[in-house]
Simulated assay, not measured.
Amino acid sequence: MRFLKFGIKVVTARDVVISIVFFGLGLVSSWWTSAYFYEKSLNDSKASAEEAERVNQLILRGIESIGTIQYSRDNSGKIVSVKIELGGNASGNVNATGTLTDAP
């Protein structure tokens, strides 16, 4: 780029080519960086979801092993229904006293 009198800029073909090259490099590097971190974020999300599913299955199996809940599963092992069995015990004790009188 060269300057004429009074600060007027003259753009040459070389300046245009250099600008296009650097624009292309910036575009490619931005795309690569975005794609890399998007892929990394996606993999982290998948791993987190798989871990959460594993923990949920362990919790459900722990509750089931106590015996109060039974799960019905399909062929793939997914829970399709739940049967909850509840029980209770009650006991009581009663004492009573009284006086028997004969009225005239």
Rank of each mutant, 00 (worst) to 15 (best):
S30I: 04
A52K: 05
S30F: 12
R61T: 08
I63G: 02
S41W: 11
R14I: 13
D44W: 04
E85Y: 10
E64Y: 07
R14V: 11
S76R: 10
E50G: 01
Y38F: 05
F3Q: 13
G26R: 01
A35N: 15
Q57H: 06
S81D: 14
R14M: 12
I63C: 12
S29P: 00
Q70D: 03
F23C: 08
S19F: 06
L27D: 08
V10F: 14
I59N: 05
S34E: 03
F6K: 03
N89D: 13
N95Y: 11
S76E: 15
N93T: 08
I79P: 05
T101F: 03
V80K: 15
G7R: 10
S91T: 15
V55A: 06
N95K: 12
N56K: 08
L100Y: 08
F23A: 15
E51Q: 09
K46H: 04
I20S: 12
I20M: 11
E85D: 03
T101Y: 12
L86Q: 12
N93R: 11
P104I: 11
F6A: 07
L4Q: 11
Y71C: 13
D74P: 07
V28G: 12
R14F: 10
Q70K: 15
S65Q: 08
G24T: 11
D74Q: 11
K40S: 11
A49W: 01
W32L: 05
L60I: 10
G98Y: 07
V21K: 03
L60A: 01
G67C: 06
L42K: 08
D102P: 01
S72A: 14
T99S: 04
K46Q: 13
T97S: 13
I69F: 05
G26A: 06
K9Y: 04
W32P: 00
S29K: 03
R73E: 02
E64I: 00
L60Q: 01
G87H: 06
R54H: 15
L27F: 12
V10P: 00
A52T: 14
N43W: 13
L25V: 08
I84S: 02
G77A: 03
S34D: 07
Q57T: 11
K9T: 06
T97E: 07
D15N: 09
E85N: 15
G88H: 00
S30G: 07
S30K: 01
E85I: 07
F6Q: 09
S72H: 14
V82I: 06
M1E: 08
G77H: 02
I59M: 01
E51P: 04
E64R: 05
V28Q: 03
S76T: 11
G98L: 08
V11T: 01
R73N: 15
T12R: 10
Y36S: 00
T12V: 05
G98E: 03
V21D: 02
F6L: 12
S91Q: 09
R73V: 01
Y71K: 06
K40H: 13
V16I: 14
T68R: 11
I84D: 08
S65M: 12
V17E: 01
S72Q: 04
G62I: 08
V28L: 00
I20G: 01
K40Q: 04
G77I: 00
N43H: 10
G77D: 02
G77V: 00
I84A: 10
D44E: 15
E51F: 08
E64D: 14
N43T: 10
L25R: 02
G26N: 09
E85Q: 13
Y38E: 05
T97D: 06
W31L: 12
E64Q: 09
L42D: 11
S34H: 07
T12P: 00
L27N: 12
N75F: 06
T68W: 13
